[in-house]
Design a protein around this nucleic acid. Structure first.
Lengths: 230, 230
DNA sequence: TTATTTAATTGCAAATAGCAAATATTTGCT
DNA sequence: AGCAAATATTTGCTATTTGCAATTAAATAA
């Protein structure tokens, strides 16, 4: 079997989400003015796999992210792969899409000229199949929010229960019931009290500080939260 | 930006599952005796993306599947993509893994010499990262079984409720409670009565025939089935 | 006819979820 | 200091859902 088959173009695209002003936002990057296609257009941050430099796809993602933002993500997972003959005018192209989460306070050193944040609901117009990728990312995040600790990766290492509930609500795009939320979060052993004082936010009783009981994603068998009808 | 980057090798690998003898089984294909690497070894069916012939990744999967088995799958979804510099001695390689389901009675025209079925629990030894791919496939199938109609794609178009419950049990590797199962399946409107006589299996009351209420995968918000402890 | 086998339904106790109200602990105002 | 307002946290109750076992239904086999 010959190894001289013509090969597809291989890239990664990253859906970077953060919580800004209480809503989910999406990182966009502006393509180079002299790019072969879509010059100057705002798209998902992405780039070619460098066979000679990147050890793995995750390496490519980290390099792309570092190049655009100078930082590291808090959480990353693979989303899906789009590959066909039509998505890129340069020829058969394949893109592996990743989802990355990042708490807002860790966003530093953004190149203000070449990157910007956009809301995900509604999602801005994006070229190629990037809207479909964002839709996949939202579906994934929403799905996992129902039975895992995923939304917590949009918060600082320590956080309060009202903050935690607010991220879940932002991600699920749905009101939750507080007493049920607390009950279930406690049942699952998702969080533990953090050392340090309670958080004074201004008025009202200060909230206790918590942190994740495990640093990695926790999957719970059952649905974490019920809806609130009223 | 030059398009003359060296590019990774791009392949697809397919985890084809069916229900044989009441348990989940996995299709293996034997590599060519004169293959550059791992000649004659049993692996997941797979192959290169043909830039000149395949319109999309799904096309590649269908072609690979047709080549090995002569048939079509009942259900197919993308699993995940493995890509790094180490998984293939020929160089940086990327494989998009797919999951495919097929009811046993639709398995026809297998090349007996070059393909065979193997149980998934335990999973046979497989080269490359194929065991990891199978593990992903099992996790996916099991996860989706809890809240979708996915296991039904391992059955004929019409089936009985005891048959349906048996596939769910085989996929989940867990006993279910029949009254809860029936209640929830009915609640979700997953199935409707099929035309035709009841199914006589020999002894006992004959079971009514049903079919999926929709031909595509149905996702339910809630967990479809509780465990049975006793 | 009657025992046996498998399918399908029913009834009920225990667990869980959703809702509303009460209680706790702070800040800001007078 | 004392009280209102704001936010956090807990508690109690009802309705729903779940898990389990028992019952009923419809066939075959002897």
């Amino acid at each position: 079997m010959s190894e001289d088959f013509p090969k597809p173009i291989v890239t990664v695209d990253v859906v970077v989400l953060t919580l800004k002003d209480g809503v989910l936002q999406l990182l966009l990057a502006q393509r180079a003015k002299d790019a072969a296609i879509a010059p100057g257009v705002w798209t998902l941050p992405g780039g070619f796999v460098h066979v000679d430099g990147d050890d793995s796809l995750e390496d490519t993602v980290r390099r792309v992210f570092r190049t655009k933002t100078g930082g590291e993500v808090a959480y990353m997972e693979q989303l899906c792969t789009f590959g066909n003959a039509r998505r890129d005018p340069r020829g058969w192209s394949l893109s592996v899409a990743y989802l990355a989460l990042l708490p807002e306070h860790k966003v530093t050193g953004l190149d203000e000229q070449r990157t910007r944040w956009a809301t995900v609901r509604p999602c801005p117009d994006l070229p190629f199949d990037h809207r479909a990728i964002v839709a996949q990312a939202l579906a994934r995040v929403r799905g996992k929010a129902a039975y895992s600790s995923l939304p917590a990766f949009l918060l600082p290492d320590t956080f309060t229960l009202p903050q935690l509930m607010a991220v879940y609500e932002a991600v699920l795009d749905q009101q939750l019931d507080q007493s049920t939320f607390r009950r279930k979060v406690a049942e699952q052993g998702m969080i533990v009290k953090a050392r340090g004082a309670h958080l004074h936010t201004g008025a009202g009783r200060p909230a206790a500080l918590y942190k994740l009981s495990r640093p990695a994603l926790q999957d719970f068998g059952r649905v974490l939260l019920g809806t609130r009808d009223a």
